[in-house]
Design a protein around this nucleic acid. Structure first.
Length: 429
RNA sequence: GGAGAGGUGGCAGAGUGGUUGAAUGCGCACGAUUCGAAAUCGUGUUUACGUUCAUAGCGUAACGAGGGUUCGAAUCCCUCCCUCUCCGCCA
């Protein structure tokens, strides 16, 4: 959420930064609303103050020996005058606060200055590459073909469709095991080598948590919502429950930075992407992800984004998968992010790099929504944290990348060395 | 699922209608004392919003959440959420 004080102080500057995302922020409308709010606030608070005073008077009079009825009679006129105006005025102020909040909740995070301008995917800027895409001396097959014909295990979309319809998958045998191995491998790497604390969280969350990270109120159509008397949603990413661990908390600065690694399934309705990636397990309604989340002091967030991205890259390096890192342009960034690096892994069958991780800094955008704060050592006052997260990595897409990059002419797939301990020493699938 | 008890400040724990944002204790911060420390003494110690140059002052709100009664609610009533104990069931 935008900082309303900054908006008041320097609205032009905020609007200009938002304009880089292709968004027109109606500053005049905001200012008019805020001016009205200010007026309503001051008036309603004044009336409340007067009313409080009258109540005290009754108390004082009763104490000094007057009967309750007589005491009430003394202030009746004053109260009548206040009440004639107060209820409506308080309601007006409340309504204006809600209007302003609703307005602000719908505005995305302004990008950092260093983020490149652009309209969409094509304007993202490559930052670095790692690894050489392998030259194949046979015809490359995609993961769907490989997964359908492997001797030791199967990737089966028909079985999944029977159960749940399109965009689900069933894995059997060595592929199911590889999938599980990837999760363990990633979580171990981040907790043992990169200093993240492993955490297990609910997969169903309430609307408050989703509002905190920015999925609500604007993107409800992307979520799966439960039937039933309680309002619960399946998490679209571990970011939601894990970041919200700090919601409404004032963290002891000695505990910072908080760094969590969390494996969860993720559920996305993929509304609005019906035609995209319909083949294979690139884009599913359900997938596993190992997520990295950091909560840091504001001055540390830029460095934290670099290191977090590096931690995600380390997974690909350990697996020997070629990738590149791009910084997303203003037009391609997520709603809550102020700077995002996408890591894209080489997919041989598509002859291009595809997103396998997205690492973002949110500045204080999420923490303001969820009131995730820490006590500043100098001022002693609670101040907003900065939040970050990144996939480390998307497990299904990692499995796709391994099948395709490590495929052999005979239809088998070589197991990357780093994973062999997790597959009972197995060298090929 | 059945029966009962609760949710108050960093923690413990008072407060069942009146100036109580909240006693007391602990913790914490600063100061005094001390060679230094402990002990002791003193002072201070929730948050949000508004106003403001101001993290000064002032105002408003908040005792799980929301609603109600009342001149006045932490205290009374209703709904919801959560925690604990016992019984049942269960991976």
């Amino acid at each position: 959420m935008l900082d309303i004080r900054e908006l008041r102080r320097d609205g032009e500057q905020v609007a200009a930064r938002l304009a880089r995302r292709g968004l027109t922020f109606d500053l005049a409308a905001f200012r008019a609303l805020d001016a009205e709010r200010k007026q309503a606030d001051m008036r309603s608070q004044e009336l409340q103050s007067q009313r409080k005073q009258s109540s005290r008077e009754v108390g004082d009079l009763v104490k000094s020996g007057l009967s309750v009825d007589d005491a009430k009679a003394r202030v009746a006129d004053a109260l009548a005058k206040i009440d004639a105006e107060m209820a409506a005025e308080v309601a007006r102020a409340e309504a204006l606060h809600q209007q302003i909040e609703a307005l602000l909740l719908g505005v995305p995070n302004p990008p950092l200055d260093e983020v490149p301008d652009g309209k969409g995917e094509e304007d993202n800027v490559e930052v670095r590459r790692w690894g050489q895409p392998r030259q194949f001396d046979f015809t490359v097959r995609d993961h769907v073909d490989i997964g359908a014909s492997l001797a030791s295990g199967q990737l089966n979309f028909d079985l999944a469709a029977k159960l749940s319809g399109a965009r689900f998958s069933v894995l059997t045998g060595s592929l199911a095991r590889l999938h599980r191995a990837l999760i363990d491998f990633m979580v171990d790497l981040h907790s043992d080598k990169h200093g993240y604390e492993e955490v297990y969280v609910p997969y169903l969350v309430g609307p408050e948590a989703l509002r905190g990270t920015g999925q609500l109120p604007k993107f409800e159509q992307d979520l799966f919502k439960m039937q039933g008397e309680r309002e619960l949603y399946l998490i679209p990413t571990a970011e939601v429950p894990v970041t919200n661990l700090a919601a409404n908390e004032i963290i002891d600065p000695a505990r910072l930075p908080l760094r969590y690694v969390c494996h969860t399934p993720c559920f996305r309705s993929e509304a609005g992407s019906h035609g995209r990636d319909t083949r294979g397990m690139i884009r599913q309604h359900q997938f596993e992800k190992v997520e990295l989340v950091q909560l840091v002091r504001p001055e540390d967030s830029l460095a934290a984004l670099e290191s977090l991205t590096g931690h995600a890259e380390a997974v690909l390096q350990a697996l020997g998968l070629p990738y590149r890192v791009v910084v997303l342009c203003t037009g391609d960034m997520g709603f809550s992010s102020c700077k995002t690096y996408d890591i894209e892994v080489w997919i041989p069958s598509q002859n291009c790099y595809r997103e396998i991780s997205s690492c973002s800094s949110f500045g204080d955008f999420q923490s303001r929504r969820m009131q995730a704060r820490y006590r500043h050592p100098d001022s002693g006052k609670p101040e907003l944290l900065h939040t970050l997260n990144g996939s480390g990595l998307a497990v299904g897409r990692t499995l796709v990348a391994i099948l395709e990059n490590y495929q052999n002419a005979d239809g088998s797939v070589t197991v990357p060395e780093a994973l062999r301990p997790y597959l009972g020493g197995r060298e090929t699938l």
